[in-house]
Amino acid sequence: MDTVTITTGEERRPLGPLDWLRWGLVSFPMLVSIPGASGWLWPLIGVTLVCSVPMLRPPARPAWVLPAGMVVVIMSSGTLWVLQPNSLTSVAMFSTTFYLMRAYGKVLTTAATVLSVIAIVAMAWIHRLDWLSAVSILSLPVVMLLLAANRRGRSARLEQTELALARAQTAAEEHARAAALAERARIAREVHDVLAHSLAGLALNLQGARLMLVRDGASPDAVAQVERAQKLASDGLAEARKAVAALREDAVPVERAVADLLAGYRLDTGARADLVVEGEPRELDAAVGTTLVRAVQEALANTRKHAQKADVDVTLVFSPEQVELTIADRQGRRPPDAPAAGYGLRGMGERVALLEGELVSGPGEDGWRIHLTVPAWTCAW
């Protein structure tokens, strides 16, 4: 079975030069400090090296590992710098401080600044630095703080610009879609008012002609020809009505509708939202497509309510006889059992039951999981 993957969340990127440089600014000073370190300084060097590993490859979860590791690196490398003033450990402390200021918010920025200032004051006090040297070193955290604030501001402006462009593109697409729908509605009215009415009148006239031929004792061949013409008119009328219905509906593929819902969830929460489509997507019956889309919509609403900012994985499997949909949120823990099914899940179950499908929902190992199976009815026209 072919697999098509649509990823709407962030993917793990390969290590780049900046990652190695950021980690090297911590690890290299520690390695250089080893020969001159006394026995009781070895634990500080070891702790610094261990806590610097997340800076090379930030873990996806839990999120607190990287900032906590950087705080420890600042503390341990600052202590080493105070105890070994001729070493390069200050490079590790200041580079980690700047990275923490640039990547995180006010609380961690304040913590990094306070820790750096404490180390500088201790250095100046213990080693009797003159006031000019002390002020020069104290200016480093201030400069880094300004640079980090400027970097965060620039990143925020870029994000706002991208968001504005995305909204403008969405508005343009919605405008084009509305124009297309208006044109389709106009064509549907024309087909209904002209073609469908004409075919309906033709079918009625042919029926009257057939009755008159039967009454007057016409030949069977003539009656058969009129009956055939009446059937063609009736079939044409049915096809015209189907065409009108198709023009008035804006059928969106199920996989696209689900991807749009996940994109909205990601923009609202900032969490990861992935869609995996297996098999060959195809146009489904309106009832089947509506059930699948409403199931994803209800599941995302429940996730927003009960597990804010939880990652979501959705799998849509197309097989010849059925369509399977699995929605799982990643809360990082096993949620408690629901005392009773809410109206949303109950309505979802009723929709699936009307289609003679199956619905299973409940807590999993790391979040809530919904799995439903419905027959793969395709559109008749």
Results as ranks from 00 to 15, higher is better:
A164N: 00
A166W: 00
R167F: 00
A168R: 04
A168H: 04
Q169R: 03
T170Y: 07
T170I: 07
T170A: 12
T170G: 15
A171V: 05
A171Q: 10
A171E: 10
A172Y: 01
A172W: 04
A172N: 06
A172K: 03
E173Y: 04
E174D: 13
E174M: 08
E174C: 05
H175I: 04
A176K: 03
A176R: 07
A178N: 07
A178I: 03
A178V: 03
A179K: 00
A180K: 05
L181N: 11
L181G: 12
A182Q: 11
A182K: 01
E183A: 11
R184W: 00
A185H: 11
A185T: 07
A185S: 09
A185P: 01
R186C: 08
R186H: 14
I187K: 07
I187M: 13
A188H: 00
A188W: 02
R189W: 11
R189D: 15
R189H: 13
R189K: 15
R189Q: 15
E190M: 13
V191G: 06
V191R: 13
V191L: 15
V191A: 10
V191E: 11
H192G: 09
D193V: 05
D193A: 10
V194M: 10
V194K: 03
V194R: 12
L195K: 03
L195M: 10
A196W: 06
A196H: 09
H197E: 13
H197M: 10
H197R: 13
S198K: 14
S198H: 14
S198M: 09
S198P: 10
L199G: 03
